[in-house]
Amino acid sequence: MKVVAQRPESLTDAPFHYCPGCTHGIIHRLVAECLDELNLREQAIGICPVGCAVLAYDYFNCDMLEAAHGRAPAIATGIKRLLPDRLVFTYQGDGDLASIGMGEIVHASGRGENITVIFVNNAIYGMTGGQMAPTTLLGQVTTTSPYGRTAEQAGYPLKMAELLAQNQGAAYICRTAVNNPANVMRTKKAIKKAFQTQMQAKGFSMVEILSTCPTNWGLSPLEALEWLEKNMIPYYPLGEFKVS
């Protein structure tokens, strides 16, 4: 018998702190598998967000930094400009990237900053306890939209992949999901493609990954996967928005 699935070298052995069924764990593993398979672990520098993935520096087995809320793309820019041959990636959630860090992400993509952004969109603030995110869907109940988000009061959820794909500096923009095995495989392919885009110095790359938050959605892990498929995918269509 030969081993076909085991822990990648680009992850440390630390157990994840995430809630049961939270798909951050799957995405961490996919990022690490791509680093392994492209032999990039020793030249990778990752930047964690503020949010549930704030502790990701304990999990990725490569050089890591922890950023102020939303600033990961600016930090990545500072690193990449001085070490252009390294693989520099940020790992950010929806509040971090699309709310408080909107300025940094738009300008990093606009400059065609040669970095890769792993954007985990679960339509809610996880770490702070389930508040409304810029990607929270209309009607979705959160602790700060207790009667459901309305367009009148809070506007519309932001479609980051579509928004950033308009920038000329963006080289690869893709949206995937991790709600079933086929989509998990597609997500891995997209992450790999994003890393390759960077290593070929083509410019800014981002994979937006629709992810679950069973705890703050108030659903079981399996119900959360269904909720993602029925509610998020229709509003946030999957696919590649920019390839160059």
Partner: peptide
């Protein structure tokens, strides 16, 4: 040399670059 989009971005670029 990089003109940042904001003071916030500039100081965080310093953070990343200093980390190298």
């Amino acid at each position: 040399f990089l003109q940042a989009e904001s003071e916030l971005a500039a100081i965080n670029m310093v953070y990343g670059a200093a980390a190298t």
